[in-house]
Amino acid sequence: MTHSLVPVAAAPSSDLAVAGSWSRALTLPPLGHLDAYISAVNRLPMLSLEEEQDAARRLRDHNDLEAAGRLVMSHLRLVVSISRQYLGYGLPHGDLIQEGSVGLMKAVKRFDPDQGVRLVSYAIHWIKAEIHEYILKNWRMVKLATTKAQRKLFFNLRSRKQGLRAEAADGDTHREVLSDAEIGLMARELNVKPEEVREMETRLSGGDVVLDPAPSDDGDDAFGPIAYLADGSHEPTAMIESAQRDQLATEGVARALSELDERSRRIVSERWLQVNDDGSGGMTLHELAAEYGVSAERIRQIEVAAMKKMRKALAAYA
């Protein structure tokens, strides 16, 4: 856990200058670990309404960093409290506090004491928004929610799902997949379509998969999805070879056939290029022998010579 209020590197670019100047003014002494930081934050004094408004006006009117420090430091316990609500996402508590602190600084920067609300009420939105953004970017490698409606559904679905599990009529609190009745109930409660609930539930229940795992300790390559997900048909070499085969099967064969005399061309076509409706081939050796008045062996000899000549023509074409 950083010793300063919030690391400058964690602040967005639009607030980098403010975060940089405030981080020099708003620091806690070296604390060693997160529990000590939280304990120190909870001992910081709260501001009365008059003190808060006075500090907010001095910041607004005179850009008083000392006043900003008093406002931020007195509300760090709020950041810690809100960040605890999001520990179920498996992200480090210190990072949640850090992102929430960025949101608190944004709130202090924009707070207007003349609006008639306390800073604590105004800052909650900014703290949660910053934590939400951090969770959506880091909970999974692939971003789960991009629109405002999806973000709202993402955070509401987890909490509502826990409630449904506790009230499960069938007593099966360990069942992972929502039933159709539960999806319909949740859709009505959240005022969304059942299809949207089902889609988000699918995204939440799925995990990240390493496509190309690292080699094991014994030096063998680990088997991963990349081994069977790769599409070899779009590999450049395979595409070139496929195009060449197609060209040989059309233009190449046509040119090779043109090198033969009429009888040899017909024998090859009937024996190798004709396909009947029932899937059978063309004429047999005996049928061609009867047509040309020669023996079947002679037809075979003509076919062999024609095929040899075609192979030479195809090799020259390739």
Rank of each mutant, 00 (worst) to 15 (best):
A313C: 03
V253P: 02
G94P: 03
G282L: 04
E287I: 13
E51Q: 14
L229C: 00
L78P: 06
P45R: 14
D208C: 00
A290I: 07
D35F: 13
A256Y: 06
R198N: 03
M1Q: 06
Y122R: 09
W139G: 02
G207L: 01
V117L: 12
D114Y: 09
D95L: 13
A305W: 01
N42H: 15
R140D: 01
S280I: 05
V142T: 07
A181K: 12
P12V: 09
L136D: 10
L211I: 00
I302W: 10
L59N: 04
D246F: 10
V108F: 03
P236G: 07
G279L: 05
E262N: 10
L185Y: 11
I226S: 05
I299A: 06
Q244R: 14
A55H: 04
S258D: 14
L65P: 01
V304R: 13
M307D: 05
V197N: 02
L257F: 12
D220I: 00
E52V: 10
V80W: 05
A318H: 06
A187F: 03
L49V: 12
Y122N: 10
V268Y: 05
E235T: 12
Q162R: 14
D180M: 11
V275F: 12
Q247N: 10
E259N: 06
H234M: 10
L248T: 03
L144K: 13
L34F: 09
K148T: 15
V142A: 12
A313E: 01
Y122C: 01
A289R: 07
E201P: 00
S48V: 10
L96D: 10
R165V: 13
F155E: 07
M186E: 01
H234K: 13
H75C: 08
V6Y: 01
